[in-house]
Amino acid sequence: MKRPQLVPATRLAVIAVLGVGPALAQDQILEGSFALPNVQPAVSGEMVVSETGPLSRHIELSYSDIHTGERVTQYEVELTQELHLLATDAGLSHLVHEHVKAAGDDGRFTTELHFPEPGRYHIYTDAAPSGLGQQVLRFELQVGENGNLDTQADTLLGSPPVDVKDGPIVSSDQGYRVTLSAPDLEAGKEGMITLAVEKDGQPASDLEPYLGVAAHAVFVRAQDLAYVHAHAMTDGPNGNGHHAETVEYHEHAHSHHPASNEPVEHEMPSGAEEANVEGDEAGMGAEGTMDHDEHAMHGAAEAVGSVSSTMAIHVTPPAAGAYALWVEFVGGGDVITVPFALEIP
């Protein structure tokens, strides 16, 4: 039985037709700050936000080339989408993800976002303007009256971060239990995180590729909101022996609330090998959007069980500190998001 979600009937809906929107309240115009650690910015960004409900906002986003001042109108397709959005609250307690498949002819993206509760939100917009590489901006948005921008490292995802050297660490979502081990992970160096996914006490046998890869891992550092996204590798039939990029880049429509996050005293299964996630994936075709299940399954022609229950993630944490981590994969036809609160030395 699936655990109730914070926003049971709420899913991020995308409005793909530019210039058409709901009756809007007074607009807010937000300027983005560059959010990729150790990367030189090539764009600036502006987000126009209009209230459409107590917890919903209509958003228009545009990027501009900082060297020419011209609006960006062409984007590369990354894992089937041109824009990926991540929204998380000040305490890094909730995660909301969405995609916009394509920008309009004038380079603007439009979307309707729904938030799980009032508060201050960090909204990351992740795209690859043609010729400029991966670019991620962060926008700060107040939703409702409550909340502030203070992020407390001792309350990530509702629990204290666990030092990765004290693992393995276990967390769960929707009946799936994930064991994480990363005893050698440290800031500034590429390291490996290994994962084992279980369902009903057994290795999960109903996993499928999610947007063409085995799993995704989204990291947000509490101290400075640095943001890293990496892709999992697997030793199952879908494992192709290729390297997983450490890129700041996101996908899926999902709202998530905290779950368990505790160290355990057993070893991880071995045998994780690499699966290819480098470069662009196949595009989506005409403008528009897909619903949550279509997002999950697009590009996943392999049968149920084609992804192994043991995975590995190569990642380089930009700095030591407390991180919220969300591991995303497809299990039983649904996108599963398993949260961890980690301390990385």
Rank of each mutant, 00 (worst) to 15 (best):
P209I: 04
P129W: 05
V304W: 10
S64L: 12
D163I: 03
H254G: 11
G147W: 05
I169E: 00
E186H: 14
V39E: 07
G271I: 02
Q26P: 12
E190A: 11
R57K: 09
L156Q: 03
A196P: 00
H254A: 09
H67Q: 12
L55D: 01
M268I: 15
E98V: 13
F115S: 00
E328D: 15
A127E: 04
R138I: 11
M297G: 10
D334C: 01
A16D: 13
V164T: 13
A272L: 10
M1C: 07
H229A: 12
S64G: 02
M233V: 09
V277I: 03
L83D: 00
H94N: 12
D224C: 06
E248H: 13
L24S: 15
S309H: 15
M290Q: 05
A286P: 10
P317S: 07
L24V: 15
G332C: 06
P37Q: 10
V164S: 01
Y124E: 01
D89C: 00
L24Q: 11
A230D: 11
L92G: 02
H58Q: 13
P116D: 01
S309L: 10
D150Q: 09
L137H: 06
E60C: 07
P22K: 06
Q174A: 11
A103D: 05
R221P: 03
T88M: 06
H256Q: 15
P209F: 02
T151L: 03
G188R: 02
A13W: 13
S205K: 14
A253M: 11
Y210Q: 15
L113K: 02
P339T: 10
P37D: 05
V277H: 08
G271C: 07
V304T: 14
G299N: 04
M1K: 09
A182Y: 02
P116V: 05
T316L: 06
S64E: 09
N240T: 15
G158T: 03
G53M: 00
E190D: 08
E76Q: 07
E262I: 12
H252R: 15
H94P: 01
H122S: 12
A320K: 10
G32S: 06
A153Q: 05
S181A: 15
G332F: 04
H67A: 15
D334I: 04
V72H: 00
A102D: 14
E262K: 11
G167N: 00
G144S: 08
D27Q: 12
I29K: 11
L185G: 04
R221E: 05
E60L: 09
S33R: 13
E186P: 04
G271D: 07
L211T: 12
T234C: 09
T246E: 12
D27L: 12
P339G: 04
P345D: 15
V96C: 03
L12D: 05
G119F: 04
E51I: 12
